[in-house]
Each structure stands twice: as C-alpha cells, then as structure tokens.
Design a binder for these strands. Sequence first.
DNA 1: ATCCAGAAAGTTACCGGTATCAAACCTTGT
DNA 2: ACAAGGTTTGATACCGGTAACTTTCTGGAT
Lengths: 325, 325
Amino acid sequence: MRDVAERAGVSRMTVSRALNDPESVKEGLRKRVLSAVYELGYVHNHLARSLSSRSSKVIGLVLPSLENSIFAQTVKGVSDLLRPLGYHLMVTECGNEPKDEERVIAAFIAQRVGGLILHGTHHSPVAVRMLQGSGTPVVENGDIPADPIDMVASYSNREAARAMTLHLARLGYQQIAFAALAANPRGATRSLGYDDALAELGRPADPRLKIEVSRGFAGGAEAIAHIAAIMPEADALFCAGDVMAVGALFECDRRGWKVPGRLAIASFDDLELMRHVSPAITSLHLPRYEMGKRSAEMLLSRIEGRELPVPVLDLGFEIVQRAST
Amino acid sequence: MRDVAERAGVSRMTVSRALNDPESVKEGLRKRVLSAVYELGYVHNHLARSLSSRSSKVIGLVLPSLENSIFAQTVKGVSDLLRPLGYHLMVTECGNEPKDEERVIAAFIAQRVGGLILHGTHHSPVAVRMLQGSGTPVVENGDIPADPIDMVASYSNREAARAMTLHLARLGYQQIAFAALAANPRGATRSLGYDDALAELGRPADPRLKIEVSRGFAGGAEAIAHIAAIMPEADALFCAGDVMAVGALFECDRRGWKVPGRLAIASFDDLELMRHVSPAITSLHLPRYEMGKRSAEMLLSRIEGRELPVPVLDLGFEIVQRAST
DNA sequence: ATCCAGAAAGTTACCGGTATCAAACCTTGT
DNA sequence: ACAAGGTTTGATACCGGTAACTTTCTGGAT
C-alpha cells in the first residue's frame, strides 16, 4: 500500500479511503490512486484491515457434514445473501462430536470472523463460553433449541416429526415404525416428536417400532430387515434420515414388498431424489434455503448494529404427500 | 496478550513462544504463562499472527458447487490431512463462471491464505495473474490441464471418457450415445475423450449420438427422450454427469425400456447411489478422496519449503462394471 | 479582502502478534 | 575459577492496514 501511495503521490490514508469509501476522495486523486493500484497489481490485505478495524467481512458456517446434499441449500441461502454485500463465507465441517465442533469454533473465533452460523444445537459448555465471551454474533439453525446461545432461524425437528407421524396416522396406518440414525442428536429429537404423536393418538409406545440404523442407503435396508424379522405387523415406516428412505424403498423392491401396499414409507428430508424414485416418497419439506438466507440476514443485522425484534425465528415445514404413503 | 504477559510477569514475546513453541520456554515460566492464559480466557488472534508472520494456516478450497455430493470426498480428503497438522480449511463455491471464480480467488488472496486448491482448470487470465503474482501455492485438481498454474493432482477427464467408451465398445455396443451437461467445461473435455475413442475404433462421429442436457435427474430423462426421438438405434448411453445416469435409468423404467437389454447405461461418477439402483450402474470410479488428500499434501510440501519432484500427479481412474451394461 | 464552516488530505498511534538481534543466564571443560 | 558456547528471555521494530485527530483547502457570506 505504501508503494501505491508513493506512486500516486498521496498518503496511505488517502489510498485506504479511495478504496473503502471512494466518495470521500476527490475525483482527481481517486483516479490517480486507482490507476496506481491497477498498475502495481495491488491486492488489499484483509488480514490487516480486520486487525486494524476489529471487524471482519467473513462469516463462518459450521455444518455436521459436507457429504450430505441436504445442507447444500442452506449454504446457497447464506451465500446468496452474503455475496452481493461483499461478505465472504467460510464453510467447515464438524462431525457429530462436540469436541470437534469446539475446535472448529475456536479456530473461527481465533480468526475473528464477523459472525457464525451453527447447524447443530448441542454444544459443549466450553464452546458456548467461548462464543459468548468473544461477543461473536451467532445463529443456530438445525433445530429450535430450548436454550439458544444467541439467535435462531430454523424449523423444529420435534414438531416436524410429530406432524408427519400424525399425517401417517390420519392416512390410516396403524403400526407406524420409526427409524433414526444411531447416536445422532437430531435423530433423538425427532424421536421425541414421534413419541408425542403416538401419545396424542393414545397409542402405546411399542419399542419394536423404534429402529436405530447406520447412515446412508444401508440404513434403510437395515430398517426393512428389522421390520421383517421383529415387527412384521408394521404397515408404515417413517425414516428420520436423508437417503435412508430411498434405501428402504430399494430394499422393499428387492424383497418384492409393495410400497405402499405392504409398507408405506415416509422421509424426513425432501431430497430431489425423493421425487424421482418410484413410487415417489412422501417427505417433510424443510426450509433449508430459507434457513440459510434468514440466518445470514439476522447475522448482518446484528453486525450492523440493528437490534433484532425476534431473535428466535421458527420457519416451519411442509408435508409433501406422494405415492409412497 | 499483554494482559497475559503482565499476569505471568513475563514479556509478550515469552507468551508468544510458550504458545507456539512450548519447548523453547522453560518449564516454570511456561506453566505460569499457560495458567495465566487459562485464567484470562485468552484466545489467540490468528489474524495478527498471520499478518506478522506473513503466513497463514488456512487453506482455501474452491469448488464449482457444493450442491454436488461428488465433491464431498475431495473435501474429506483435504480435511483429513489438514486437521491433524493444525491447518484450517475454508471451502467456497464458485459456479461455472470464470468471473465468479476470479472474485473468490481475489478474496482468498486478500486474506493471504497459505495455499489454494482449485477444482476447475479453466481460469480467467486475471485470476492466473493474481495467483502467480501473489506467490500463493496452488493445486488444480478437477482435470489435468495442458498448462498448469502451479501443481496438479487429478485424473484426466479426457482419458477417463475415452476408456469408458472403449469399454462399452469392447462389450459389444455398436451405437454409443454420449450425454453431457450443456455449457460445462468438464463436459466438453469428456466429449473429446469420447471422440478419441470413436476415432480409435474407426467409427464415424455421428452428431445424433451427442446429446446436451440440463443438470440433475432431469438431464437423464432428456437424454432418453432424445434417443427415443432422434436416434432409436443407440444401444448404449454414456452419461458424463453425476446423477444424470440415474435420471436416465428412471426414465427407461417409466418407458418400459430394459436396461441393458434395450439400452445400456454408464455413468461418469461413481456415486453411492449407482450401486443401489436396479440395475446397478456401470461407472467410472474417480479418485476423489485421493485427489483431496494428495492436493493437500502437495500444498503443505510447498508451503514448508520442500520442492516437489512431480508437480503434476495423475491419479488415474477405474472402470466399475455393473449390471447396467 | 476577510473570515469561517465544512470538506479533503495528512499525521500519528495503535490493532495484536512475531522476527530479529542483543542481553542475561546456565553449563561444561580445563 | 574462568572463558567458551549454548539456552532462555527481553527489547525493539515492523507486518499492512484503519481510527481519531489535525492541518490544509475550498468556496461562499460578510
């Protein structure tokens, strides 16, 4: 920057102003500065800028996994909002271990990001302390937590699971099985919603209807195997994981089970794939894109000093009824 | 940091050393410093560190899209290597527009990342100039470019497409159609490999066999519609895009076409889904994970000053023959 | 012509660390 | 006991910007 200043025959401060707030520098000088910038191929150093101004135009996004296309929409929502405003997005994966999330969060704070979006809602106490201590604005958006760190923009896993279970009951299914990923916090929350629904319906909670499976397509096949072996009376299966429902459908195909004749299948996430398999799978459509966009909005409001009227935003969900139920 | 130093009764320099190179500070002082750090809840400022040391522990990864699960493996490869070494990964999406990529690259350089991994191999001249001017180590890894910016770790799209086409010919298919995404640079390169193979086989290049489609499952359906309408003699379809082959398979199902009886289908990328649909789809298995891992390795070697024996690494590919061909 | 308010440009100090070199402190061999 | 040589620790400058304040220009109004 010194070089640019010398070349343009002005002070460093003027260069800084010409770049960050062009209006405040007179036409002539501004032109001299900008052409010097161009000639020298100068690239602004955001590091120094952030250090000096104590504010950064980088927003961090922490996701449980990047392997999962369900988060793509959220990323897009955040990114679409941020890009035109000159903010940059930094995405990181944190797995399901609170310890890993802690490390990722520490790294973000160490870099003094302007704000943070966390997909998870279960955080280690250390992480929470760091976040609150650092004063970084935070939005959580994978669920509606009982005790938010700062702001929230999400749907409720528990409510959504409850709604889908009631929907299946309304369609006349009597023995609704529920399959979730083992050791997955969101799966556990969804399971509560399923319980809520059964309780509302006055149905007993049969442990044979609750299935824990591994991730991916394989999980769906495991769920079907469980039903075949332990609970053949089940007439509907509600899969609380992304591709699990498709795996279950494929497995039914292999076994010659009619869907929904022998077993109805419903899915938690409305991946594009759900519309394309045959039969198309009934799904909960979650506001993934909206979550990203609103999270980013809330963050920017806070960063720019506007206090928020509603720091907890419930974006709801939608049941998409298709041929599989 | 000043507070920590005062509390421990040492100089700031000693604190810095106790944190970055504990060996170099004697037991007693180190303990005093570390407990002061803990008591004050001090979080290191990476911004200042990078600015001062002119080196950053952040690696940037630029992907065309995050919606696409094929990149997940690459992310994982990079991340697995980086994490234990204390480096952090920053992932960004750049679309297929060179202008967008340019903006993303500029932002990374402005933040003085330690190294950059680019998935694309078509870059605007401005981007190349910025990269070379800034001296940032770069690995390209979506293809083997004719004229690399710096280092490369990839497979060759052209070679892979050629190999699959020859494989289909070897299986006896006479009229092999090829479908690629419209306006996709990698699609165009793959198309060249398909041409190579036909030329080697001495078969004429029939323009009716080349199909341009839109992305997603829909593209596969379009390809089948094209074949039905324009080129019903085709007996095999080679899809040069991720989920396109599955879309094509579903469409065949809808039309009652036997796969591979009426039409064989082969895919470019070996998504997990390919194994689970029925029939399972023959695919090119690409070294996605390896690409990420080796890219990160190369980057770190360069960053740590080790010159590399082979700055262009061809990681090959593998044809996985399944029931669809 | 003089004065003055507001705009434009410059000065200085500091953001929070590390590089570099000098000073103080130990060992060890003779 | 002392010089030599290696380790620890400290002092100072600087990384590349911006905030806050000061000075210098402007262009009317008096």
